[in-house]
């Protein structure tokens, strides 16, 4: 059996900087959010008859028939499908819910050339059905009738786009998604209008007015 280390041997072990670095304070929240989002996505994939609402960006282009109200109903139905046995709880024992979400990230949204100078913010919270994204961009003008805004979560390589809701105004709006935010860390807001009735789906117009990132892309 080995004897104890002497101080010189210990020094060789202890000099490694990796032993002394500390992770960020917020890493625990990100880990919890990542696992919970994975649990939600797995449960949704197991229970939903159709595939989860992660779509190929190219398949969505030029398909636009859902009115905002219809899309909102579709979003609610999707959220219902994503409701799973999971009941995330906070340290105080409270159950996460849409009315009592667990905030995990906040980010700034910046106006593009289509909304120069407009600033906004998004708060991302974990709820039992996935993540809730509260968007506040009071500088964007209200859209009426068949014109609206749509929120999206996007993957870093821009190949996957997840709708989070449609809105006439974004002074204080809330959307939802049932996907892992660490795989879809980009939040964008696009300008949309209702398309013709022959289209089979409503996709992104590509007219991004606001965008922000939850985390840097590799």
């Amino acid at each position: 059996m080995s004897a104890d280390f002497d101080e010189a041997e210990l020094a060789l072990l202890l000099v490694d900087p990796a032993l002394w670095s500390e992770p960020s304070q917020g890493l625990a929240d990100l880990v919890v959010a990542a696992v919970v989002a994975e649990v939600v996505a797995a449960a949704a994939a197991a229970s939903a008859p159709a595939k989860a609402p992660v779509v190929d960006l190219h398949q969505w282009r030029n398909r636009r028939w859902l009115a905002p109200a219809g899309a909102a109903i579709g979003g609610a139905a999707a959220a219902a499908l994503l409701t799973v046995a999971l009941t995330p709880r906070h340290d105080d024992g409270a159950v996460s819910s849409a009315a009592n979400p667990a905030l995990i990230a906040s980010l700034a949204l910046t106006g593009t050339g289509l909304a120069t100078g407009v600033q906004g913010s998004a708060d991302v919270s974990v709820v039992p059905s996935g993540v809730q994204i509260r968007i506040r961009a009071p500088g964007l003008p209200r859209r009426e009738g068949d014109e609206f805004y749509e929120g999206w979560l996007k993957s870093c390589d821009s190949t996957r786009l997840v709708p989070i809701g449609t809105f006439h105004e974004l002074a204080d709006a809330t959307g939802w998604a049932g996907v892992s935010i660490d795989k879809h860390p980009i939040v964008t807001i696009t300008r949309e209008s209702v398309a013709g009735p022959k289209d089979v789906a409503q996709g992104s117009s590509g007219e991004v007015v606001l965008s922000g990132k939850l985390a840097p892309c590799p």
């Binding site: 670095s21 500390e22 890493l27 994975e38 649990v39």
Partner: peptide
Amino acid sequence: RQGDERAVRALYDAYGRLVFA
């Protein structure tokens, strides 16, 4: 295993810094 948020946090509290190291 059930995906309980509090359990995830407890596991992180116990092992997160070691995983990070």
